[in-house]
Amino acid sequence: MEPPVPLALAQAVPRLPHGRKGLWWYEPKFDGHRAALFRSAESVRLQARSGRDVTAAWMDLALAGMVLRPGTVLDGEIVVWRDGRIDFAAVQARAASGIDRSRVLAARLPASYAVWDVLAHPDHGDVRARRYTERRRLLLDLLADVEPPIQAVPATDDYETALVWYEALRAQGIEGIVCKRAASVYRSGRIWQKARHADTSEAVVVGYTGAAAQPRALAVRLADGRTVLTQRLPAALARDAAAYLTAAAPGPPAATTAGDTYTTTPVDLVVEVLEGTTRHQVVTASRVR
């Protein structure tokens, strides 16, 4: 399996799904940057959700990944811990840095890789068609003797335990809970569910201003149906969004609810916006989801 690989995503839901025991599995939702890790015979590569190669920004994790068996492909979240809590700002700083700067930041605050899935196994090849519970067993076996900074995320099929995690782990920077059906295979698209704490909300990207390769702002559709422009995008977020926007031809021009013109786009892209800003005509996008 070679990068880039389309990754599975999660759909936001207001509460944890619940059914008979064993139907759903629950994992803490780490607040970092999504990445797939590819261990070949010679090296390790890291791929962002957009498909972009981000190995240079996370060389400490690439080096740590050399202990994995060749033929391993993992899916997880890159996080940085500071004083017992996940520091998303530190992750953003690393992601936006050049090679030299990222090395300095890595020495100060090393990254960790929280792994929740295996896409390819050295002995079984591509395992994306296997059910979640089978892939989970394979993942735990692969990482049994692997030490931090690469670790499997906790998982439980007990609903009450998941509720405790949802409340108790918030102080450590855990965003919420990701919920996966036990029988689900791994495929691209929003196949999982996620219940998150209500500090932020999500908005669908319908267009942009500026060039696709260098978007100035995003046109987003909010939950109440309004279409608005975000504030000007910071460099790191503009780069992440551009990876998606440039993958499709621009659509015809359109106008927001307030009458601002933007270029439409057919890409499937969701961004996180700060809670409270959706009352106004301009929102603040904080990251690609």
Rank of each mutant, 00 (worst) to 15 (best):
T263A: 12
T257E: 00
G207R: 01
R221A: 06
Q193Y: 13
A249Y: 08
T265R: 04
L218W: 02
L237R: 07
L229K: 01
R187E: 15
A213K: 12
L169P: 10
G276V: 09
V273K: 00
Y208Q: 06
A195W: 01
P250Y: 05
Q172L: 09
D224F: 04
A235L: 11
D260C: 09
D199E: 14
A223P: 03
Q214R: 15
V185Y: 02
K180Q: 11
T256V: 05
V273E: 00
A248S: 13
D260N: 09
G189F: 13
A249D: 12
V178S: 06
A235G: 02
L169I: 13
Q193S: 15
G173V: 11
Y186Q: 09
R239W: 01
A211E: 15
D224E: 06
V185E: 14
A238C: 09
V204Q: 10
V178G: 02
G207N: 05
P215R: 05
T263L: 11
L274F: 05
I191K: 08
Q214T: 15
P252M: 12
E202Y: 15
L274D: 04
E275K: 11
D240R: 11
A213S: 15
D199V: 13
V178C: 09
P234E: 07
E202I: 12
V270E: 04
G276P: 06
P253Q: 07
A242K: 02
W165F: 07
A255V: 14
W165A: 06
P266G: 02
P252L: 10
G251H: 07
Q214H: 14
G189C: 12
T256P: 02
A183C: 14
K180E: 08
G276Q: 06
G210K: 06
D260S: 13
L237P: 09
A213I: 08
A217K: 09
A183R: 15
P234R: 10
V267L: 00
P266S: 01
A171N: 07
S201L: 10
V228K: 03
E272P: 02
G173S: 12
G176D: 07
T277W: 01
R226W: 03
L218K: 04
Y244Q: 09
G207F: 00
V204L: 12
Q214C: 11
A247Y: 01
A195Y: 02
R187K: 14
H197P: 14
A247L: 09
A242N: 01
A195T: 15
T200I: 06
P215H: 04
Y186F: 13
Q193V: 08
A211V: 15
A223N: 08
A212V: 13
A235D: 08
A182K: 03
A249F: 08
R221W: 05
A254H: 01
Q172G: 11
P253R: 08
G189L: 12
L229Y: 03
G276D: 03
T263H: 09
D268P: 00
E175D: 12
T200R: 13
V205R: 07
A198V: 10
T230Y: 03
K194H: 05
G210F: 07
A168H: 13
L229D: 00
L229F: 09
W165Q: 02
V267N: 01
P266I: 06
W165D: 01
V178F: 00
V228Q: 03
